[in-house]
Design a protein around this nucleic acid. Sequence first.
DNA 1: CCGATTAGATCAGAATATTTGAACAATACT
DNA 2: AGTATTGTTCAAATATTCTGATCTAATCGG
Lengths: 301, 301
Amino acid sequence: MKYPITLDALEVLDAIAKKGSFAAAANDLYRVPSAISYTIQKLEQDMDVVLFRKEGRKSVLTEAGKVLLEQGRAILDATQRLAIATKTTHNGWEPVFNIAIDSILSFDFIYPLIAQFYEVQPDIEINIYEEVLGGTLDAIISGRADLVIGAGDGLAVGHDINYHKIGQIEWLFAVAPDHELTKAPLPLAQTLIEQQRFVVARDSSRTRAPLSRRVFSKRPVLSVPSLAAKIQAQCAGLGVGFLPAHQIQDQLGRGLLIALPVAESLPIDTLNMAWKASNKGKVLGWFIEQLDKHVFNSAAT
Amino acid sequence: MKYPITLDALEVLDAIAKKGSFAAAANDLYRVPSAISYTIQKLEQDMDVVLFRKEGRKSVLTEAGKVLLEQGRAILDATQRLAIATKTTHNGWEPVFNIAIDSILSFDFIYPLIAQFYEVQPDIEINIYEEVLGGTLDAIISGRADLVIGAGDGLAVGHDINYHKIGQIEWLFAVAPDHELTKAPLPLAQTLIEQQRFVVARDSSRTRAPLSRRVFSKRPVLSVPSLAAKIQAQCAGLGVGFLPAHQIQDQLGRGLLIALPVAESLPIDTLNMAWKASNKGKVLGWFIEQLDKHVFNSAAT
DNA sequence: CCGATTAGATCAGAATATTTGAACAATACT
DNA sequence: AGTATTGTTCAAATATTCTGATCTAATCGG
């Protein structure tokens, strides 16, 4: 069964609609007007429909012609994307790449990397997701992420997951400048800290219970949607808590937050990336290589 | 810019995949094998990708070939649907037709009509929705329905809506066979009725307040999601209420419900269809004509 | 009102694309 | 070893698409 519609004919139809006339479309497509006329007449004959009617010396689309044009454009777009997807697959690149990033990190570091990647390979669809700590393993195993970046230890025993340390996170106990703790003897005693209202960040994109890190407080906590909101709440003096050092350099510099030493020394969290060992994709390989080089939370900066 | 992909090439690729070889695909497409070979080689050259590799004397798809095949099939399907949609538009038929039916009716009556319509015109997408009484006018004005069928008077003053009576609904006051009202003097007095628990049906597909018809009860009502649920609840003796006669013939015949006369005579509701006066669609015209002929709730049945 | 310009159609001939038929090499089967 | 099948090559045939010339009809500007 021969298809009455050809992509070339849809392209001609599109050009006529965009340029407003057969003659202009011909010019646009480097053809002569009679070639355009031939193509449209052949399409009308093959489809057994009328696509244009005469208005004076101009041809205008019929309702059927409009249906063909609109949905034809969608098919042309899909075909162009298909050509690209086929070519990127041919070249060994995955056509789609998903990255999940721990909500405790900002996304800022990944954008320059993606910009670099798009210089190398512009035709890949990259999707970025925000994950909480506990979700990173799920994201890899379930296949919804090709690569995850987040804090915490690798716990993927028996799951054929590769972990690689790419940095570390320093936690600071931070309070507003007018908080009473700024007048207390340093380092802050555990018993004093326990009496404070902690601000905790929950993951707003997940319907799970709020994930609280190092909640020492014996007072009701203040729960906020995100890390950014937590920082704002602590700047406002609404509570206290630990914050990743790299996220509050600006606030510390401007005196909006004060980092106070605590008696108990906090371990520094490692920052890992993880991926399925069986995944040999070139996009994944590129990102792994680049993240390995990337310097996170440098003390010198 | 010439498109490297042609629909014919996608059809060839599809045939090769389905039939398992170039030779079988050639046979299927009424061509010679060298025509298939030519088409694939031209496609590979135009796209600058490798689609097949040799395994012995057989050719098998590469990963790129698989991507092209799968998404190419979707494009072929879309193109076939587009040809049909264009043709139906050319023939004056609307490509999509939406009918909203009052939830007080069952849908049974519309299915034979749709079956008849599909004998006349199989290529139209028909969508059926359930609406409550108050929603029918909205559905027409907003354009989400081309035709609505439901009970009640036409209230569309100033809205350029055509109403047409197509039948009527007889309401019966029905109770379970072991309900105490079956022992009361007939016709049932108003004061006696008022003391009963009524079952009312709300529209589960809408987030509006329950729509109650003829709620006489001074007791808390039992609200259920649908008319079907209302019938079931009344059969179970959970309450009383009015039910459209045509919907409970079976239950009456089997003694699952008893229809009791009430002192106050109830008006019979008219059943209307409504549509926008400016809508001249052929599908709409066909349904209006057929519904006009259709006999609803005939006393003889 | 008239000449110039533009839009699209017609058609013979040219150019390009696709197909066929014959022959071949390589692989698989009996 | 002989036969069958798969896919390729290639000259020739066929089909499709395009060009260039010419035409009709409609619109525009002086």
